[in-house]
Structures are given as C-alpha cells and as structure tokens.
Amino acid sequence: MLFLLIDTPLTDTTHTAATQIAPAEQDLRFIDLLMKGGWVMLPIALIAFIGLVIFIERYLTIRKASRDESNLMLQVKQSILSGKLDAAIAICRNSNTPLGRMLQKGLLRIGRPIKDIEAAIENVGKLEVSKLEKNISILGIIAGIAPMLGFVGTIIGVITIFHDVSIKGLIEIGTVSGGLYTKMITSAAGLIVGIVSYVLYHILNIMVDRIILRMETDAIEFIDLLEEPGK
C-alpha cells in the first residue's frame, strides 16, 4: 500500500508536467513564418520574382552570345585572304552573333580609311554590349531595395507593438517577443533577397565582361588583318 501511495502521485505529477510542456512544443514552419511577416512580404516576394525572371532571361541570352567564335573568325580570315569579300559578309550575317555583326560592319566599310572601319566596329560593339546589359541594372536596384523594404516592415512592426503596449499600460514579454520575432522575418527575407540579387547581378556582369574582352580581341585581330595587305 505504501508503494502504491508513493507511486501514484509521482505518476500523476510526471503526466501533468509532460502535459504542460507539450503545448509549448510547437512546429515552426517556414510558410507560417513568411505569412506572419505581414503585407511587406508581398513587395519583397514581387521583386524577388522579377529578379529571378530577369536573371534567367539575361543568363540565357548572354550564354548564347558567349559561345566560342573561333571558327567564325577563321572562316572570315580565310575568305578575306582569298579575296572573297561577299562570302565573308555572308558568313558574318549568318552567324547572328555580336561578333558577327561587328565584323560585318567592318567588312562593309572596306575601302575606307582604317580609322573609319575601327569607328564603325566600335559603335556596333557598344550597341551589342548595351543589348547584353539590358535590365541587368534592375538586379542591382533590387539588391539595394529588398533589405530596405525588410527593415521598413520590421520598424512598422515594432511601432505597432509599442503602440499596443502604450494602450494597455503594461509590458508583457510574451507579446513583445512574439510580435518582434515575427516582424524580424521581413528583415531576414529582405536581406536574403538582396544578397541573392547582388550575387546574380555580379555573375551577369562577369559574363558580359568576358564577352567584351573577347570581342575587343577579335576586333583588333580583324583590323590587323585588314592592314596586312597595305604593309
């Protein structure tokens, strides 16, 4: 009997403690956190989607323009050395690449001073680079705006929390901490979107810089080729 009397309260106490602890253990799901961020999460999600679309579109375009053009340069060189100017122009036109359009412009200017040919190639090159860089700057803007939007959401949340505290006239740790951690979600989301956009922005710029370097190298080789017969 003594053992039964001692064992029963212990069991009840353990069961009660477990019951009290169980409700405190709640699953913290990522989607629920995002929903608690408030209306500021909508513009953050919108600019994140816009940034992703721009990156994919620009990446595919730049990747297409960055394919190896050594074969094109070789064919143009052979045609020029063979005196087949029309064939060289046709090869450049059919390539449908930034380098091909640059060389085509230079070939159409053959017979004029070298300075004029260089200027024509340079102008076409600038146009091609501007086409490649189209909308890339928007990623840079998103990288700057997203964290600011996140901070705005957090600040609005903090203002709301302290407004409620001023009305109630007392500070409840649960209310303050609970409301604050949900509002910090906007800052975290804004920073994540900003960091990712910043990285993607520089990835595209690096790809464009490589294309520019190769275009300049091929343009110099082309001009040198045109100057050879006159030496």
Rank of each mutant, 00 (worst) to 15 (best):
residue 94 N to V: 07
residue 118 E to H: 06
residue 105 K to N: 10
residue 108 L to G: 04
residue 93 R to A: 11
residue 121 I to W: 06
residue 97 T to Q: 05
residue 106 G to F: 00
residue 96 N to K: 13
residue 85 L to I: 15
residue 125 G to P: 09
residue 126 K to A: 11
residue 97 T to P: 06
residue 100 G to E: 08
residue 99 L to S: 06
residue 99 L to P: 11
residue 101 R to L: 11
residue 79 S to F: 09
residue 115 K to G: 10
residue 85 L to F: 14
residue 108 L to C: 08
residue 80 I to W: 09
residue 79 S to R: 01
residue 126 K to F: 13
residue 91 I to S: 08
residue 98 P to E: 06
residue 115 K to F: 14
residue 103 L to A: 07
residue 98 P to S: 12
residue 125 G to Y: 02
residue 127 L to G: 13
residue 84 K to H: 15
residue 89 I to C: 00
residue 118 E to Y: 05
residue 85 L to C: 08
residue 91 I to R: 09
residue 98 P to V: 10
residue 95 S to T: 10
residue 121 I to Y: 04
residue 123 N to E: 11
residue 122 E to I: 06
residue 79 S to M: 09
residue 106 G to V: 02
residue 93 R to E: 12
residue 102 M to C: 11
residue 90 A to F: 13
residue 97 T to R: 12
residue 122 E to G: 05
residue 122 E to P: 04
residue 121 I to K: 01
residue 125 G to Q: 03
residue 120 A to M: 09
residue 123 N to I: 14
residue 93 R to H: 14
residue 83 G to R: 01
residue 89 I to V: 13
residue 107 L to M: 08
residue 99 L to Y: 05
residue 89 I to D: 01
residue 89 I to M: 01
residue 81 L to I: 05
residue 113 P to Y: 10
residue 117 I to M: 03
residue 101 R to D: 09
residue 102 M to F: 07
residue 126 K to T: 15
residue 90 A to R: 15
residue 118 E to D: 05
residue 79 S to D: 05
residue 87 A to I: 14
residue 91 I to E: 12
residue 87 A to V: 13
residue 114 I to E: 03
residue 127 L to C: 07
residue 102 M to Y: 04
residue 122 E to A: 15
residue 87 A to S: 14
residue 118 E to Q: 13
residue 93 R to C: 05
residue 118 E to R: 05
residue 121 I to A: 00
residue 101 R to W: 11
residue 84 K to W: 10
residue 122 E to S: 09
residue 85 L to S: 14
residue 124 V to P: 02
residue 86 D to K: 05
residue 79 S to A: 14
residue 124 V to I: 15
residue 95 S to A: 15
residue 106 G to K: 02
residue 80 I to M: 03
residue 97 T to F: 04
residue 105 K to S: 14
residue 126 K to H: 13
residue 101 R to I: 07
residue 101 R to N: 15
residue 120 A to L: 03
residue 126 K to P: 04
residue 105 K to A: 14
residue 115 K to E: 15
residue 126 K to W: 12
residue 125 G to E: 03
residue 123 N to P: 04
residue 89 I to W: 00
residue 106 G to Q: 00
residue 94 N to M: 09
residue 87 A to M: 13
residue 89 I to L: 03
residue 117 I to Y: 00
residue 79 S to T: 08
residue 117 I to F: 01
residue 124 V to Y: 05
residue 91 I to G: 04
residue 110 I to D: 04
residue 97 T to N: 08
residue 81 L to N: 11
residue 84 K to R: 15
residue 97 T to W: 09
residue 89 I to S: 00
residue 121 I to L: 01
residue 98 P to A: 07
residue 92 C to S: 12
residue 119 A to D: 14
residue 106 G to W: 00
residue 88 A to G: 10
residue 113 P to R: 04
residue 115 K to Y: 12
residue 118 E to I: 06
residue 125 G to C: 03
residue 83 G to L: 00
residue 124 V to C: 06
residue 107 L to V: 06
